[in-house]
Amino acid sequence: MIEVQLSKLNYQPGETIEGKFVWKQIGKGIRFDIRLIWFTEGKGTRDHQTIQKQLIEPIEVDGSKSFRFVAPTWPHSFSGQFISLRWAIEAVELPSEEATTVILVIAPEGQEIVLPRIDESAKFTKPIEGLLR
């Protein structure tokens, strides 16, 4: 059994993400990759990228190890009508590539940006008075 423990799930860009990777009763020769990744969900074909990773090769059957990443400055977590971008910590078992995933938010104020829905029928309204020079 493996587990990823994080002190919190919402981070600001540049903030340190600290966590602990815990394993119990694992077989011999198994290694783990702790990865900080972003990926997209929604209508489009998925894009993803590993930003940082740390390899762990346990010797003991049970144990734990702390890890630390720095939350990148971009891209920010957001949700729109077509695209959602999510950050995650993946603990990937090697070589099987089975993963335990914890979803994070990395965005200003630690809050996911929600894109507004707009009424496309109202395409143009008069700009605010005084805006023009």
Binding site: Q49, I51, Q52, I59, V61, K65, F67, R68
Partner: peptide, 18 residues
């Protein structure tokens, strides 16, 4: 040093940045 104990990770150690 990672012998199953809870070791703290020094900043910048064995982290691959992509």
């Amino acid at each position: 040093e990672d012998d199953g104990d809870d070791d703290d990770l020094e900043s910048g150690e064995d982290i691959e940045k992509y």
